[in-house]
Amino acid sequence: MNDYVSFVKKMACEILEMLAEGLKIQPRNTFNKLVMNEESDSIFRLNHYPPCLDDQFKGGNLIGFGEHTDPQIISVLRSNNTFGLQILLKDGNWVSIPPDQTSFFINVGDSLQVMTNGMFKSVRHRVVANKSKSRLSMIYFGGQPLCKKIAPLPSLMKGGDSVYQEFTWFEYKKSAYRSRLAENRLGEFEKIAAS
């Protein structure tokens, strides 16, 4: 398990470096140094969704894990080749992500959305239960230390305007615990909301 977590952490950091390079951010380790910090609030979670009986599906989809965005910088997810993961499109429709046990699903987290001043968006997703097969997912959430400030990088503020006010990861987590899963947990930190 430790080897697996080390591998996905390294992969997450390489992806973050490529994002920084693509955005022409210097230094290239601007994002991944937060994840690599020894005080990083990164976590690994294993989720198990057992199959559900037909009579539990009377109203349509049975939700295994409700609609949400991931709060950290980046998430690396892998599952056991079982349907269940869905993302919300801009038009309000949910779309199933085809399972692939040989691939990883990468999510931009709320923290990266803020640091890129909204250039990258954290995707709303959920997990629906499967009627015939258990779903197992392994997720590495690359996070920053609790005391680190989260704010848009100056080089990414179009015209000098920041969409978000500065906050710490601890402040975000405290706010998130007071909210419901499907709520916009960044709303409290948007400049419009602060005005």
Rank of each mutant, 00 (worst) to 15 (best):
R124M: 07
F57I: 13
K121H: 11
D100F: 08
N107E: 02
D110K: 04
G66N: 11
S103Y: 06
F83E: 14
L77S: 07
P71Y: 11
K121R: 15
N61I: 03
S79W: 00
S42I: 00
F65Y: 15
S122I: 06
N93H: 14
F104R: 05
D70Y: 09
D91M: 02
I87Y: 08
C52T: 11
I73A: 00
G64D: 05
T116L: 11
N117L: 07
V95L: 13
F44D: 06
D110H: 05
N61F: 12
N81T: 05
F120K: 10
E67K: 15
P50C: 13
I74M: 12
G59A: 06
C52V: 13
S79K: 00
I97K: 04
L112P: 08
G84I: 11
I63T: 14
H48Y: 14
L89T: 13
Q72F: 02
H68M: 09
Q113L: 11
I63K: 01
H48P: 01
D41W: 00
G64M: 06
Q113N: 10
I63F: 00
N80Q: 06
I73Q: 00
E67F: 03
N107G: 06
E67Y: 09
I106A: 04
D41F: 04
D110E: 07
T82H: 03
V95G: 04
F104K: 02
R78F: 03
S79D: 15
S103L: 15
G59H: 11
G84P: 06
